[in-house]
Design a protein around this nucleic acid. Structure first.
Lengths: 343, 343
DNA sequence: CTGAAAGCGCTTACAG
DNA sequence: CTGAAAGCGCTTACAG
């Protein structure tokens, strides 16, 4: 049997409210005699008392628990691994404020109420941070189930309570770099669109295109070849030339392109240019030289946590949405091209 | 104000215990009249009632909440990204059994009680799944704070309640492959040891060495060059020959080696052999051709969840530790070598 | 099969 | 500055 507050109170020779005040100062009348406080803390120490979160939650009618909803498409149980960086940032930002972070996955929301996760079926969360985009019906459902939602890196974008990287700027930086370095042929890798396109793909594309056409160049497009698509892979290899640069949407795409190139004995930076609109942690070890737009996803998580606290403490209206900046990292997979015509 | 069980009971014209029984059947005397049950469910539907997790937790003295502890070394806030795969598996396995998964990070345990995370400071968890190894003092502390701990992919290994990949076998498979393919010079990449070496590094090394020496070959070793270490990188490149193979410990290391090679215009599979003892999700997109030992980390999470449920339901003694298998994926970064001497 | 009562361990007004 | 009481929303024996 764990130690209870009543036991601590008894040992300290005070009442429960006093113990409660000593442990969770703040609120209006926090004043407790110096001597009393000492006795209470000593009793806590002696007994090894640890409060019961559920009792507190019940009395206060708030769990001090925030959920993080991660995407989990049926058919791909492990979508969007980069979300983990953000999750850890969220954890840092929330736990520092006394919140516990609970994990939830998108499938949970879609199932019928009967076999839903407790995160949705019961009242467990004070709020939910949604990472990445969700199907529209899920988004609607969420706001009913959980009062307080913060949308992070999601297609949902409103005046308040949302958070995003400036994806258009990411695209612009990548496109600008391609043009500035003097590449003649700029190709952006695109995806075959899934059910619903993530806003970042559109924004990045617009950003790249804007910068490239502003430089008076044409933007080519190419679909990322699948693993088994030998013909498409060969086709891609054919476009790889020293004065051609591939602009990738994601880091996975960049890896895939390097792999396809390597397979044909080609190396980025030497045989063709390669720029990624996105980044990932550990890249400094895996591929430090990749020319890319970098962005601190962990920090995004920390900011999402701050936004959630704002919404929880001061209401949604008080918390304007945030757009986070990004910057270019010059690497060696895209290099300055020799001037073509006489200077 | 959320709907309460009392309101549901009133609307259905029954008492609270009846509602409780209808909603959470099981236990001894679950029998409720068919008509009564119908009325209750109808009332639940009409009111949109959702139980309060904390009230239930308090009455039952269990939170139905399990923590996942992830490593988070000071100085590297984002250690071990692969853990995310396991976390999602844990989530799947536990939420299906009605548990909520909470995240915790190692730093939380080390700090003084005063500013610890609530996950440790209060009673919030029924149990904790530890992913990866923790400093020894943390491990000791954990068992005091949380009664029920499951060790997953950790240096802690006992008769009961632990879970690991068979790392020795992973090394053996990699070493065996290197030898079988006919490479003359086999080099294993090692790390400069950190504070405390993860068991997998030792086991993999032993596995590789066993297989290589059994084949009558010598196992060379090399330290993974850091990013700035130009001399070491050149040195590594010098050892790259068509009849030489590099065996990497981790997937990050494999990427790093490929990067160093590419920098010098070398390509794995053509100019030298490359085998990884480890794998990661999304590799099928990033680097499908890498010859490697594969292992389903997500599944490990699912199994860790099962182990936790076992420990929670039937006690530690009833749950023997588990060692998970792995297998080789033949890729194209390591190829069969031409026979040297006459056949 | 169903209901009334007690209790889980806290916090929050409310008196002193 | 401190204590006694009521209440948070459930579940668990215990009677009927």
């Amino acid at each position: 049997m764990p130690v209870t507050m009543a036991q601590v109170a008894k040992l300290a020779g005070v009442s429960k409210p006093v113990v409660s005040k000593v442990l969770h100062g703040g609120g209006g009348n926090t004043r407790v005699g110096e001597e009393t406080r000492r006795r209470v803390l000593e009793a806590v120490r002696q007994t090894g008392y640890r409060p019961s979160a559920s009792a507190r939650a019940m009395a206060q009618r708030r769990s001090r628990q925030v959920g993080v909803l991660v995407p989990n498409n049926p058919g791909n149980r492990f979508t969007h691994p980069l979300a983990y960086e953000t999750i850890l940032g969220v954890n840092e930002g929330l736990q520092a404020a006394g919140y516990v972070v609970a994990l939830a996955r998108i499938d949970d929301v879609r199932r019928d109420l009967a076999d839903q996760s407790r995160v949705f079926k019961e009242h467990v969360l004070d709020g939910m941070i949604v990472l990445d985009s969700m199907p529209a019906d899920v988004e609607r459902r969420l706001e009913e189930l959980i009062g307080t939602v913060v949308w992070c890196d999601s297609n949902v974008w409103r005046e308040h309570g949302c958070l995003r990287r400036d994806e258009r700027e990411a695209g612009r930086l990548a496109g600008q770099a391609a043009a500035d370095l003097g590449y003649r042929r700029i190709t952006m890798m695109t995806y075959a669109p899934p059910h619903r396109v993530h806003f970042s793909a559109l924004e990045r594309y617009e950003g790249v295109r804007g910068a490239v056409t502003a430089a008076g160049l044409e933007l080519h497009e190419a679909l990322e070849p699948g693993i088994g698509e030998a013909a498409a892979r060969r086709e891609l290899v054919r476009t790889l030339r020293p004065d051609a640069v591939i602009v990738c949407n994601s880091i996975y795409q960049a890896h895939a392109v390097r792999d396809i190139a390597n397979e044909a004995g080609r190396v980025p930076g030497r045989d063709f240019g390669l720029i990624s609109c996105d980044d990932m942690h550990q890249l400094d070890r895996m591929w430090p030289g990749l020319t890319r737009v970098t962005f601190d996803r962990y920090q995004m998580g920390v900011e999402a946590a701050a936004l959630m606290r704002c919404v929880l403490d001061r209401g949604r209206r008080a918390c304007p949405s945030v757009r986070l900046p990004c910057r270019l990292v010059a690497g060696d997979t895209a290099r300055r091209q020799p001037r073509s015509a006489g200077r």
